[in-house]
Design a protein around this nucleic acid. Structure first.
Length: 228
DNA sequence: GCGACAG
DNA sequence: ATCTTGTCGC
């Protein structure tokens, strides 16, 4: 599929933040997005070492699922190196080049991208899911495993229980329990998606695990690609 | 000033 | 993210 070019690429934190600020106005945060996406792609990245600097070997995977059956429709993997040091808030720049490479090899154009990380639940309202939304033009959402920005109250203990993730006076996402008694996940909108539909989709994608099948399969694929 | 901080 | 033993639970 087509993905917009990444240049200019930042070499400093200030440059990276400037890029986020320049791309943020391109976000579509009002479209309802796909109510019932037919194909959903999960994205994830695995690293070879524990280094948080630049140059570490990594593998980026994209797995497209049929949302109704959860059957895998297509897979794509790319290996590369970390393109930016790990800096909270600038996390996207670390894995974006390799993720984009994997996306470009995709024959299927998914109805929705489920990213490992956040969308607008971000200090500058431009997390990885937002960035990928602008680059691809596709609806995107972010599913995080831990909190980054925002405050929240613990949701109920049952699958489907949820509560708002708020930063100041704005709701930037939702804390969603995907399984009874397990830690909740943090869902936020990236591009061309509504929070309600995003949470419904995440629940459908997570019938018997904490994380959506999209993320779980992309995680496995990227991990395997790092070896053979 | 100090600590916290998506993956 | 990754480094790691044993342990609890379905």
């Amino acid at each position: 599929m087509e993905v917009r070019d990444l240049h200019p690429w930042p070499s400093t934190r200030a440059e990276a933040e400037a890029i986020q600020d320049r791309l943020r106005p391109l976000l579509d945060l009002h479209s309802p997005g796909p109510e019932r996406p037919r194909t959903v792609a999960g994205l994830d990245v695995s690293y070879a070492g524990g280094s948080e600097g630049t140059g570490t070997r990594l593998a980026a995977a994209v797995v497209v699922l049929d949302a109704a059956t959860l059957r895998t429709v297509e897979e794509s993997v790319a290996v590369g190196t970390a393109a930016f040091p790990y800096v909270p808030g600038l996390f996207a720049f670390r894995e974006l080049p390799t993720l984009v490479e994997a996306l470009r090899d995709l024959r299927t154009v998914p109805d929705l991208l489920v990213c490992d990380g956040f969308g607008v639940a971000h200090p500058r309202r431009f997390g990885l899911a937002c960035h990928l939304g602008v680059l691809t033009g596709l609806p995107t959402i972010g599913v995080g495993k831990t909190a980054f920005v925002g405050a929240y109250a613990a949701p109920g203990a049952r699958r489907g229980d949820a509560g708002p993730l708020t930063d100041g006076d704005e709701v930037v996402g939702r804390v969603l329990r995907t399984q009874d008694g397990v830690k909740p996940v943090f869902v936020s909108v990236g591009h061309r998606a509504s929070l309600d539909a995003a949470c419904r989709t995440v629940l459908e994608l997570a019938p018997d695990h904490r994380l959506p099948e999209t993320t779980r399969r992309a995680d496995r694929l990227s991990r395997d690609a790092l070896r053979g």
